[in-house]
Simulated scan of single mutants.
Amino acid sequence: MDLCVTIKGVSFLLQTGVGILGNVMVLLAYAHIIYTEPKVLPVDLILCHLAFVNLMLLLTRGVPQTMTVFGLTDLLNDPGCKVLIYAYRIGRALSICITCILSVFQAVTVAPAGPRLSRLKPALPSLVLPTIVGLWLLNMAICVAAPLFSMAPRNGTVPAFTLNLRFCHVDFRDSLSYVINGVVFSVRDFAFVGLMVGSSGYILLLLHRHSRLVREMRRSKGAGAETRAAKIVITLVVLYVLFFGIDNAIWIYMLTVSKVSPVVTDMKVFFSSCYASLSPYFIISSNKKVKAKIACAAVRDQPSVDNQESSDK
């Protein structure tokens, strides 16, 4: 096997494996928190859902991409490609939307109470689940066109204006539909990214200008959790914007050529999946409840390992 192919395959394998493990740990920790605690913070529900959609993204794009790099071909037929591409598009869109909602929610939470926010703040926790459901329905409707252009590879040939994912092709047939598809999704993505950047900037502005207010919040009940949550949000947004910029720079280049090199497609897939792979570890390291649940699970498993070692001796 060529050295370049080996490096690429190992990179995808590590990224996908590490990402799936991290998101599964976050989901299991939050499942235990939701089951055992009488009251769950809305930000925890949002982070739990973010881990779920990122896991969905890795399973629908990272796993088949890794298998293809290692030479496994003919993985899917036309219906399989349509389902997989549709699920990936929804997962990617929801990863953007949920991160955006997370930053907006936290910005409203830490904002000083005023005439306009006095009614919104108490109702905000009850709006989390309806908002997430609405985002699911919205993106399922927006992404419905993706399966129409998806198909299994045909005899190793790649037509013009086709995204070659190796395991599937997304054939747009002509330049107009190719460019329109790219522009529509780019506008949606940039709109949500702009909103999350604006919300995060507002959070940073509040934490910087109102240090006395922040100290008072930390003394009050639940304020420490809100401050830690704000820091998690800012970290996730910075992480997302970084990889989003790289991903879209490659995507803009792809819109300017009729035939996209598989190497360029692999680079786009890798950078677009970095956020899904790394974000759960920022959640684990920053969220005390998640870290505690994972630590407790590790401690519970340790005695059984020690007993097994003693019996072997």
Rank of each mutant, 00 (worst) to 15 (best):
R218A: 08
I250D: 12
D312S: 15
F149M: 04
F271H: 11
N307P: 00
L236Q: 10
V108G: 02
D312Q: 14
A113C: 08
R119N: 10
N54I: 09
V26I: 07
N164K: 06
P130C: 03
V26Q: 07
C274M: 14
S279C: 11
L165G: 08
L28A: 13
L278E: 03
F70Q: 05
A51M: 07
A230I: 09
T99K: 02
S310D: 10
V290A: 08
Y275S: 03
P159F: 02
L75F: 00
T157M: 11
L45N: 14
A229E: 07
L76F: 11
D78V: 09
S200M: 14
A93W: 00
A113N: 11
K121C: 02
M267L: 15
V40E: 06
T68V: 06
P159K: 02
I203R: 12
A31L: 06
S279I: 06
A123W: 01
V238Q: 09
T109L: 11
G80R: 09
L102N: 09
R215H: 01
K259L: 10
T60S: 13
A152E: 07
V128N: 02
P262E: 11
P79C: 08
I234Y: 03
N287R: 12
V193E: 03
P115L: 08
I232P: 05
N164Y: 01
P147G: 00
P147H: 02
D301P: 05
N139S: 07
L28Y: 05
V179M: 04
G71I: 05
L76E: 05
L176D: 07
L195Q: 02
K231P: 04
I101G: 03
C48H: 13
L129N: 08
